[in-house]
Design a protein around this nucleic acid. Structure first.
Length: 267
DNA sequence: ATTTTCTCCTGCATGC
DNA sequence: TGCATGCAGGAGAAAA
């Protein structure tokens, strides 16, 4: 499940292969992703990221790619055999193919003319967690003025509050900060928000450095898995002993998503 | 206005 | 062996 770090790892992996190159052909094998055609014959000027969205920018606009749950983008050779769920090929003539594969098809591909940030999917996104305008004070103020009864976990996963943090990293961050996931966002203190925002940046930066988190199927653009999984403290470890206090980790469901946490270490 | 549920979808684990 | 069931989950849309 690509979250911000995985998308960033992919961005860094593909950029050198496709920037300043022209897309000469686009093969769409799944009708859902027909919008990919809009990139035809255009030159890629930049490869950027906004939250979990990847932006292939051209002089007239951008193709916006969301990887959903299971989407991957790989750089493969022109003659690479097509396999199952290879839904889109962006062909760069005599260079390579940027290949989009997505078994669960939760991904999306859009085209937007300039200005890119006005696209409905991007317009209402909160700040980038790794940027300077995301900090403890911002989060605290947001919780106070923009939430009524959201839990802290739900706040971290609310894209309008801060973008790119998914279930894995929200769960991990709360453990690191020692904050119980079910607590009301409004009741978390400024000091704890300070710690949370710091931990968010740390965890995300760490995960990027490790090449992302591979649970089952995430691979970067060159096919390599990420190694952050080895640093996961709680995610996916329900019932297993807490690394700190040895008590079995608890699990609860918030807004439909599983949260694993330690009742003793997180208060 | 906010919160819950539904909807995409496939693959894998479980249970009979 | 194979079938049905359940779950995972990002995020918009619809429903409550």
């Amino acid at each position: 499940m690509p979250e911000l770090p995985e998308v960033e790892v992919i961005r860094r992996g593909i950029i050198k292969h496709i920037v300043q190159r022209k897309v000469t052909d686009i093969i769409v094998r799944q009708p859902k992703f027909i919008n990919a055609q809009s990139l035809s014959n255009q030159n890629i000027l930049a490869v950027n990221r906004r939250g979990k969205y990847l932006l292939l920018e051209t002089s007239s606009g951008a193709t916006i790619i969301s990887l959903g749950m299971s989407g991957t983008l790989r750089i493969v050779s022109i003659s690479a055999p097509v396999s199952k769920h290879d839904h889109v090929d962006f062909v760069f003539k005599q260079a390579c193919i940027l290949r989009f594969n997505d078994p669960r098809r939760f991904g999306n591909i859009f085209w937007t003319p300039k200005p890119i940030q006005e696209h409905p999917r991007l317009k209402n996104l909160g700040p980038e967690p790794l940027s300077d305008n995301f900090n403890g004070n911002y989060l605290y103020q947001f919780a106070l003025t923009r939430t009524r009864s959201k839990s802290i976990k739900e706040l971290l996963m609310d894209g309008t509050a801060v973008t790119g943090i998914g279930n894995i990293y929200a769960t991990e961050t709360l453990f690191k900060a020692g904050v119980a996931p079910q607590r009301q966002a409004r009741d978390v203190s400024p000091k704890q928000y300070q710690k949370l925002s710091h931990n968010i940046k740390q965890v995300l930066a760490d995960a990027i450095a490790q090449g992302g988190t591979t649970l089952k199927d995430f691979v970067s653009s060159d096919g390599k898995p990420g190694y952050f999984k080895q640093q996961l403290n709680v995610y996916g470890r329900s019932g297993l002993p807490c690394f700190v206090c040895k008590q079995p980790l608890a699990m609860l469901r918030q807004a439909g998503r599983a949260t694993v946490f330690c009742k003793q270490c997180q208060t």
